[in-house]
């Protein structure tokens, strides 16, 4: 494990933290200033991520900040777009339909499965505040 920690670059983590944090701050400003609901913010960000991913711009951010760019929901959009392009390269038009979802399949399936499991065992509780 020591070897693993020695292999890490501190600056990667600093930029990951800063870029990830800043993307969230943009979302927070939109929520507080425009009264857009959180569902709309998520849609806006995922669409923006897909467009910037398609234009190849988001790739620069991913190269620079790693998970700081891929973990936010914009990264989900980027991942979908990247998958669609890769799909087109492999299968042509058909790839546009299978590439995106295939790239994001793990995340989508996990969220659905965990949601189902949680509904089996957990119960909603009143917010204390």
């Amino acid at each position: 494990m020591d070897m693993f920690f020695q292999s890490l670059n501190i600056m990667d983590y600093v930029w990951c933290f800063v870029v990830g944090g800043l993307i969230c701050v943009i979302g927070q400003i939109l929520i507080d200033k425009t009264k857009i609901t959180s569902a709309r913010i998520l849609v806006l960000f995922v669409t923006l991520g897909a467009i910037l991913g398609g234009l190849g711009v988001y790739q620069y951010l991913v190269d620079f900040a790693g998970a700081g760019a891929t973990v936010p929901i914009t990264g989900f959009g980027y991942n979908l777009a990247k998958g669609a392009i890769k799909g087109v390269q492999e299968y042509g038009l058909l790839g546009a339909f299978i590439g995106g979802t295939r790239a994001a399949a793990g995340g989508i399936s996990a969220a659905i499965f965990f949601g189902y499991i949680a509904s089996l065992i957990a119960k909603p509780k009143m917010k204390k505040q």
Partner: peptide
């Protein structure tokens, strides 16, 4: 998200 990615694929 998925619709946008399909459009990106088609444009590409």
């Amino acid at each position: 998200g998925i619709s946008a990615s399909i459009l990106v694929g088609i444009v590409y």
